[in-house]
Write a protein that binds this DNA or RNA. Structure first.
Lengths: 336, 336
DNA sequence: GTGAAAGCGCTAACAT
DNA sequence: ATGTTAGCGCTTTCAC
């Protein structure tokens, strides 16, 4: 009963293996009788086509590699759900890898996926300078970038308007009267990190507000790092900004804990905004004013894109921008 | 440059394909000179071994299927991290699938994994009656159950002591003076759901406390369901229990929102305990008294187990219980 | 409508 | 130490 092959089925049904294959794929004429005979044989022997062998012939593995920096972040989990909901309908499975924002690890993972001959890769790279993507494409493995862009690569991209949204969010703080605004930056090797920072700077500059050196913190998209950096500012340096802009949800969470531990109330003592909603937002007081990205939709679009790309590798790369919303909650104090 | 095979390398280096294979695997004697010649050829042609072809020969895919009910739950994400940290060292990749507690979907996913010829499967089944697991094992695909057991299957298991922990947690409530305790059950088709309920009942019975029908809620491990059910009890029926036992974190979150919306303070108005810590616990007042499982460790153990099992399919199945802690926080009121 | 046979890229037994 | 060859399970072209 173990590892029944097409050959066994053929013998059992007393036909050739070619016929079995034809029944299996239903792509060539087979007489009704033989077809039934074969199907019966398959059933009785509990035959399952070996997809490895199929892949070897067809060069199609029905495997999509998904490479993300942080799988505990619900933002990326939503993306996975979005991707899966689209591609699983076409019988694709996802190989999930995460990199922890570590570029070396990312390269290893990509290499492994390439050897596994995945049909395509969906990538949120931890480095704008990822040159390996070009190699992948040369090797005929299409890549769709999600959330994070890279330099010089002529590939499909699905991302948010990080610059614009950061600008909007900062502008909102400014219009609420804030000037002493601290930014907790994300990973500045990453397009989103850079663009959010640029958006922030542009808004500040456009309103002629100076950004103090002390108020530029590097949180690398990490909860812990953000916690440390904000703590250094507030506890060690004893500087309390009027508002804090956290460049992602994890860092907003770390920031909130510092504030909580030091009995600084949001928004009375410090205002806080974040790029991407924090976990369990609904249960936390106050809800944070934030940019809310549509991660599920991004995932779905990426799934569609990758399916199209697998079918047509020559089409011109597309860049899709998924709009994010500014959600105003009660975490920003109005200053006269 | 595209799809260089062992054959191309052989021609380029002017040796036989066998020699190339030998260099590739470094498992047979090859003279230093030829070896270098071949390595050079590989390099210059940018050769990458086709792991599909290898798999076809060896029957080893270096793929492990991971099937989980809910990937947005940090509990399961930690499990993935644990698994990955162990198996990626041995060059395994993970195919991730989630089932949303839907058993049909689970069966589909398992079938797909079996056809993909994964080397093994790590499964948190959404039904104790999963008989397909036996088929998988017959097909020579080892299975390790994680978190959730199934009936009658002679397979490796790595789980928590759900009964015991639920008993402990309930006993704690009782010792704090609670009698009107409401349980929000998980999925009662699942071993954890059942055992947690059983543990709860046993503790109640041992202390001669009657469980009221109104206080047995079915939340199916779903945030939304729990929210609905608790709301029905508290808002529609206008019954406020003295304490609530939520059988997992998502349901505790749903429950908390109902309480919050109805201005019921924890623990003053209602006490609440949960099986597994909620997301962003640190930022939420009050922190919930809970059973804290060691998900990362469970994942690591599962990873080790699966590697051992792949190496030795005949060894007797093991069952490992990972201990959970009762973490007492301020969410339970002491009643005289 | 069906069968024979080549071949996908690789490994390993056998031969030299 | 190296080459020749069969074969892993399947698809597909070419005969009939």
């Amino acid at each position: 009963m173990e590892n029944v092959t097409i050959k066994d089925v053929a013998k059992y049904a007393q036909v050739s293996i070619a016929t079995v294959s034809r029944v299996l794929n239903d792509n060539y004429p087979v007489s009704k009788e033989t077809k039934e005979k074969v199907l019966k044989a398959m059933n009785e022997l509990n035959f399952k086509p070996n997809s490895i062998a199929r892949s070897l012939k067809s060069n199609i593995t029905h495997l999509i590699g998904v490479v993300l920096p942080d799988i505990s972040n619900s933002f990326f989990m939503e993306i996975i759900k979005g991707i899966d909901s689209v591609v699983s309908k076409e019988e694709y499975s996802l190989i999930l890898s995460y990199t922890d924002e570590n570029f070396e690890r990312e390269l290893n993972v990509l290499k492994r996926l390439s050897q596994k001959r995945v049909d395509a890769i969906i990538l949120a790279s931890s480095n704008t300078d990822n040159k390996y993507v070009d190699d992948l494409i040369k090797e005929n493995i299409p890549v769709v970038l999600i959330d994070r862009k890279i330099k010089n690569s002529n590939v499909d991209v699905i991302a948010s308007d990080d610059f614009g949204s950061a600008y909007t969010l900062t502008k909102y703080l400014i219009e609420m009267g804030h000037k002493d605004i601290c930014i907790v930056n994300g990973n500045l090797n990453v397009s989103t990190g850079i663009e959010r920072y640029e958006g922030f700077k542009a808004a500040m500059m456009d309103h002629n507000i100076e950004i103090k050196d002390d108020f530029i913190l590097n949180g690398y998209y990490s909860w812990e790092k953000a916690y440390e950096e904000v703590k250094k500012l507030i506890v060690d340096k004893k500087i309390v900004p009027s508002a804090i802009f956290a460049a992602n949800n994890r860092m907003a969470e770390g920031t909130m804990l510092v504030l909580k531990e030091n009995h600084l109330k949001i928004p009375d003592d410090v205002s806080l905004v974040t790029f991407e909603e924090i976990e369990n937002q609904k249960l936390i007081e106050p809800k944070l004013t934030c940019i809310k990205q549509n991660a599920l939709l991004m995932g779905k679009k990426a799934g569609q894109m990758i399916l199209e790309r697998i079918k047509d590798k020559e089409a011109n790369p597309k860049e899709i921008v998924v709009v994010s919303d500014l959600v105003i909650n009660g975490s920003v104090k109005k200053i006269n």
